[in-house]
Amino acid sequence: MSAMSARMQKELFARSLLLQSCWSFERMQGLGFAYCLEPWIERCWSGQNGAHREAQLRHQEYFNTQPYMASLVVGMVCALEEDASSSSAEERPAKVARLMTLKTAAASALAGLGDALFWGTLRPFCAALALAGALVLWPRSPWAAAWAAGAYLLAYNGPAVTLRWRFLRLGYEWKDQIAVRFQEWPGRRLIKGLRVGGLALALAASVLMLRTVPERQRMLGALALAAAVGLQMTRVSAYRLYTAAGLTGLAASLAGWL
C-alpha cells in the first residue's frame, strides 16, 4: 500500500516545478531539490529534531539532472527517506549513505537520457511540427502564428507534463529498482521515431519554403541551407553562421554584387 497520498504527490509535483529556481554554479539544483522535498522530510522526520535537520542539510548539497527526469529521483528519494526514518538507529547511517549514493547515480544516468529525449529530440521535433504547419497556413491564414505557438505547446507539454507527473509516482514505487525498470523503457526507440518524424517534417518545411520564395532567391536559399547543414557538422554555431552571412553580404556589397 503506497504511503504517498495524492495530496502529497500534488505538493511535491508543484514544488518540483521550482527545482531550478535557485540554480547556482556551486550546488546547481541543490537548494531547489531541498525545497521540493521539504514537506516530505517534514512528514518523515517530524519529532526528531536532529535527524530532521540532517535530512534537510543533506539534500541541499550538489544535485543536478535533467529537470523532467528529476521527478523520478524525487520519488525514489521519498521512498528511501521513508525507509531510513522508520529504521533503527544502528541501521540508519548505512541507509542514509546508500540513499545518497543512489540519488547521485540516478541523477547522472537519467540526465543523459532526459537530455537526449527532451532537449535533443522532442524540442526540435516540436519546432519542425510548428514550422511545417505554419508554412502550410502562411499564405492563406493570419492564424499561422497562433498555430505555431499552439502546436508547439501541445506537442511538447502533452508528453512532458504527463511523464513528469507519472515519474514522481513511479520513482516512489520503483525505489532502488529504477535502473532495472528503466531497461524495459523504450527510450531509444522513442527518440529514433521522433527524430525520423521530425526530419520528415523539417524536410517538408524546407520544400515549402523553397516554393514560397521568389525564384531568384531559391538557389541562394538552397545554398545557404546546404552550407548550414555542412558547417553544423563541424560544430559551427548558428549565431556564427548568421554573422558569417552578414560578413558575406558586406563583402558582396563592397564588390558590387548585391
Binding site: T121, L131, A205, S206, L220, A224, L225, V229, G249, L250
Partner: peptide
C-alpha cells in the same frame, strides 16, 4: 545591404540547424 542579406538568409540557416539537430 549586408544586414538585409543576412536577414534574407536567416530562415535558411535556421532550417539547416533544424535538419542537423534531427539527424
Amino acid at each position: 545591404e549586408a544586414l538585409r542579406f543576412a536577414w534574407a538568409l536567416a530562415p535558411w540557416l535556421g532550417l539547416g540547424v533544424l535538419l542537423h539537430a534531427l539527424k
